[in-house]
Design a protein around this nucleic acid. Sequence first.
DNA 1: ATCGGGCGTGTAATCGATTTCAAGACCACG
DNA 2: CGTGGTCTTGAAATCGATTACACGCCCGAT
Lengths: 338, 338
Amino acid sequence: MASIKDVAAEAGVSVATVSRVLNSHPSVSPGARARVLAAVDTLGYRPNAVARSLRTDQTRTLGLVISDVLNPYFTALARSVEEAARALGYSVIIGNADERPELQDHHVRTLLDRRIDGLLVSPADGSSPQVRDAARGGTPMVFVDRWIPGVDVPVVRADGCPAVRDLVAHLYGLGHRKLAIIAGPAATTTGRERVEAFREALAEHGLPLPDAYIGQGDFQADSGRRATERFLGLGEPPEVVFAADNLMALGALDAIRARGMRVPRDIGLAAFDDIPWFLHTDPPITAISQPTGELGRAAVRALVDVIEGRPPQSVTLPARLVVRRSCGESEQSQRSDL
Amino acid sequence: MASIKDVAAEAGVSVATVSRVLNSHPSVSPGARARVLAAVDTLGYRPNAVARSLRTDQTRTLGLVISDVLNPYFTALARSVEEAARALGYSVIIGNADERPELQDHHVRTLLDRRIDGLLVSPADGSSPQVRDAARGGTPMVFVDRWIPGVDVPVVRADGCPAVRDLVAHLYGLGHRKLAIIAGPAATTTGRERVEAFREALAEHGLPLPDAYIGQGDFQADSGRRATERFLGLGEPPEVVFAADNLMALGALDAIRARGMRVPRDIGLAAFDDIPWFLHTDPPITAISQPTGELGRAAVRALVDVIEGRPPQSVTLPARLVVRRSCGESEQSQRSDL
DNA sequence: ATCGGGCGTGTAATCGATTTCAAGACCACG
DNA sequence: CGTGGTCTTGAAATCGATTACACGCCCGAT
């Protein structure tokens, strides 16, 4: 592969002049510029980003560590992040943690080794020392979706509490009183928040949230399945199950179907995170929708602010309830939101 | 951030010795080794991968350019690729082409600028000069899923022809005669192959594939919707629609539902690519399943073979039909494959 | 004619690693 | 005591860029 030296030789100038042309510095004569450009063309020269990064101490690359690539919510987020970053001239390297803290740490470490300019993290656990150290060490960083309390880093996320309250009111209005939740890991902020919001919303209607109605999940389909099986085996099973993410909702659907039961006839189902497929499940699923596109854009904006020395801002966007048919809604309410 | 010089100073040795310890060269005295390790520890030193790459001319990074991150088939593939690469000590940078040739070329270019050790590509178009040049230029490369004819690069893919034949036989057995297909872009190999396999399989049963029954799609949901609308507006609409990927199947489902029709009562639906959600749609969808995990592993193996100078092998794996309920299958055949 | 100030250009230092080469220390053997 | 070999070690070159600095040149002002 041709290097800047080859270009300089071909154009009959020094490497400094080549570099100046490539970086559009002002003081280069038109003649030299033309010869350099011609040489670049005939050699098919492309600057070596590795060498450039070493010298300039910036890679124009952002790291994004997400909890699970197979989760459509996170791929939608990843996509909007990449798009926003590209518009600003940055590339992004995605690390998939698979909800495993040690994998998350692995990715953070290799990303740091590569000297990415900034890091977007949705922590799989609540206290990764790796992440803490990176933040303390001065790596530009912003949390997206989930965060780690006590680490001084901007957070970009959606606030699901009002939407959860809407959901509970909706379920109450449909006559449901026995409501269960499949929670996410207590180590994650979203895992905790959603249970708390649910509990508080229930309390507003004078409803309890017994321990038996809290299933401990890990945001993966299988845990949703197991939790739902336990619910269904209860002497007094819940009337509606609320899954704290879309994958666990999928697992719940599995478990319900395996028992030969039907949604919503035998049991209702609602989910946090809305994804295109929820329109086409049997039945379409009532869900809480997050503005992933805006979330990704805001996260990149905040991170680039940190990188370029501007004061960054935490951003909280609203999530909203999308009513469909999985909780025994009437035809009427169904149609209004389809 | 501490550099190797700082470590050398702290340990009271030269940078050469530090480097030797870090790369576990044999000839370092136990004392020096211990002091270096201690220095590394107190400074929290991590080698700069950028500098290392510049010197060694290898990044231990693979590039993966996929056609669409929002397509669960490709995220499953990306996941298995990353996993296999990690096991071999490589990182993966994913580029999402969004089915747009110019975006694909953008990613190939920046990946090459970053001097990745090898490239895994699922080309969004049939003739990217960018990709051709990279291959000719000697960049280790492997095509996965789709490929570009005439470019001498190993291909790792699933052969869907037998499964398509099985599908057509299955549909024929159910009494369907009017079969339509929503094709992928003719610029992609998978786009063409699936139509051809479908046409040939129909011919085996003496069935025609009229032009009116070929919808031109682009592997995205919206095109599936439009093609299906056209089918439904025909004087003699098809009895079954076969979508050449899962996203277009989703669009088809939309279109059918928008007309107030039901699957499979009013029209049947089948899809290429199987994804977990197909079990939970209304109704569960009969689909052709690809072995994404094995595909990803084989692709990485082949690419690393090229990189490390071993003779690489093209790999073709079988796809298989998964019968569910979206084509008017009886309860019996449904249960056997659920 | 002299001086000052741009402007265009090249030389060389630099970024943080790896690696070659030579040299010093030490030991064993004759 | 001299010789040769092994084992450790460090100095310096190198990878491919960017950039500070200096130099030569030309032009206009005095």
